[in-house]
């Protein structure tokens, strides 16, 4: 379970990085070239002299914070949610407790909410298909409220948050495997206004 969560966090970080790079690519402003913080880049670089293709790579824009905010600011609400800056947090079977990995994700999401103080966010509680449809509405509610409560503890204003349970109505992964179920037991963050 811990292994799974670590992988998930790593994957979430990679996806977030990819989103940032892609988002910045659209703007393509002329800024001071700096190498992107790629994990695989340093060992390869000292061995060979920089050929022309590498120069193209170096001219990619820097993922600066102001640029990123502008990019999000220019998108529609639906597009922002499609490439959401938020990461879902996940739960154990029949549980609404945030574990360490879940708290770390919610804390990162809280930082984003503080960066965009006008955003109003719905925290959706979701369940996997192994519970009943009826009881899962209450379990999803408990998950959403657990995340909302932690966000408030981290300093997010309560009036910017709504907790809504969707039970097992909207699985993220329609499969019937352990992996699918673990992806479906989640709190999903949706920006409803900004």
């Amino acid at each position: 379970m811990v292994q799974l969560n670590m992988n998930r966090v790593a994957m979430a970080l990679l996806i977030a990085l990819a989103v940032v790079v892609v988002a910045c690519g659209k703007k393509a402003p002329v800024t001071q070239p700096t190498a992107p913080p790629a994990a695989t880049a340093p060992p390869a670089r000292p061995a060979t002299p920089p050929p022309p293709p590498q120069r193209v790579e170096e001219s990619l824009p820097v993922p600066e914070q102001p640029l990123r905010e502008d990019t999000i600011g220019n998108k529609s609400l639906d597009d922002v949610n499609r490439a959401s800056p938020f990461t879902p947090s996940f739960f154990a079977l029949d549980s609404a407790e945030l574990d360490n990995a879940g708290r770390a994700i919610v804390a990162a999401n809280a930082e984003i909410m503080k960066k965009y103080p006008t955003w109003v966010v719905t925290v959706e509680g979701h369940c996997d298909e192994r519970g009943t449809a009826e009881y899962n509405l209450a379990l999803g509610e408990r998950r959403a409220v657990a995340v909302k409560t932690y966000l408030i503890a981290l300093g997010v204003a309560p009036d910017r948050l709504r907790a809504v349970s969707y039970g097992k109505e909207f699985p993220f992964d329609a499969g019937h495997t352990d992996t699918a179920w673990s992806m479906n037991r989640r709190a999903h963050f949706v920006i409803t206004s900004r």
Binding site: D78, R82, F170, H188, V190
Partner: peptide, 10 residues
Amino acid sequence: AGPVDNRDVK
């Protein structure tokens, strides 16, 4: 219709 894709109408 809305901010999250691929959710079935019931």
